[in-house]
Write a protein that binds this DNA or RNA. Structure first.
Lengths: 132, 132
DNA sequence: TGGGTATCTGAACAGCTATTCAGGTAACTG
DNA sequence: CAGTTACCTGAATAGCTGTTCAGATACCCA
């Protein structure tokens, strides 16, 4: 902490020309204020990001979002190049992460992308390299 | 493929009451059209998602977005609970993933969140459980 | 130029993850 | 109720990832 304050002090000197104790306090407090402004449940965010960051699961979600409606597991499976079991695991992970919802109809299961999934893909689409 | 067509045929029978060969073709073609409508570079998307899905890197980006301006490495380090080296690796990964940009000023390095990073966090914030 | 500082890099390794395999469950059908 | 179908689950394992340690690099300053 002391060492970190020293480095911060040197940064402030570099930026402002000089630096007193209050300058350091102020800078540290600003950082702390930023951190305490973080949303409460950031773990759920990271889970959603990681779950969506996998090839199989990303492809499934992209398909559901593109379709714009719920699809049956048997419509999803041919699109991704893994076993039925892997698709099932993927859909289970996606459901738990809040990226898809599940509806049962007899032996069939229908999955649909959530708003969160749609919002994330939309954010990526809007900021893709060479877009805008 | 045949097996999958059979399952799809049974699904269509279940949904529509009956199903001829054209019905199956039409359904398969629709799925294929969805897939070919995917953006070209989805790998970069998944990289961005995975990079942002890590605790250290998420926290750094969240800090930079909250600050709304570039910060020096020495301002970032005290906020995350890992070694200087880990922070450096994290910032390097984030830069490569297009989530932050880097500016040199002497021995100091300043990092700032990109639009892509901001858009992703914003998507998460707008769709958080119990929001809206 | 020599010492100090800020940050980066590569290797190593513990821990996590994605897939498959084998088998299980629930629902329809005759 | 017996067979079939659609999908799920748990264990196993190969491969990936995140962190640290040790050392390197680039820059500043006296």
């Amino acid at each position: 902490m002391t060492q970190r304050s020293e480095r911060l002090e040197r940064l402030i000197v570099q930026q402002e020309g000089e630096c007193c104790a209050e300058d350091i306090d102020e800078r540290v407090e600003t950082l702390e204020r930023h951190v305490s402004a973080f949303p409460a449940d950031t773990e759920a965010d990271r889970t959603a990001l990681n779950v969506l960051g996998n090839d199989t699961r990303y492809t499934i979600v992209r398909l559901l979002v593109t379709a714009g409606k719920e699809l049956c597991v048997c419509e999803v499976t041919p699109v991704v190049d893994v076993s039925d079991s892997a698709v099932s695991h993927a859909l289970s992970d996606l459901t738990e992460a809040g990226l898809v919802t599940r509806r049962k109809d007899g032996t069939w299961r229908y999955y649909e992308a959530t708003e969160r999934a749609t919002a994330l893909l939309d954010a990526l689409d809007r900021t893709r390299e060479g877009t805008q």
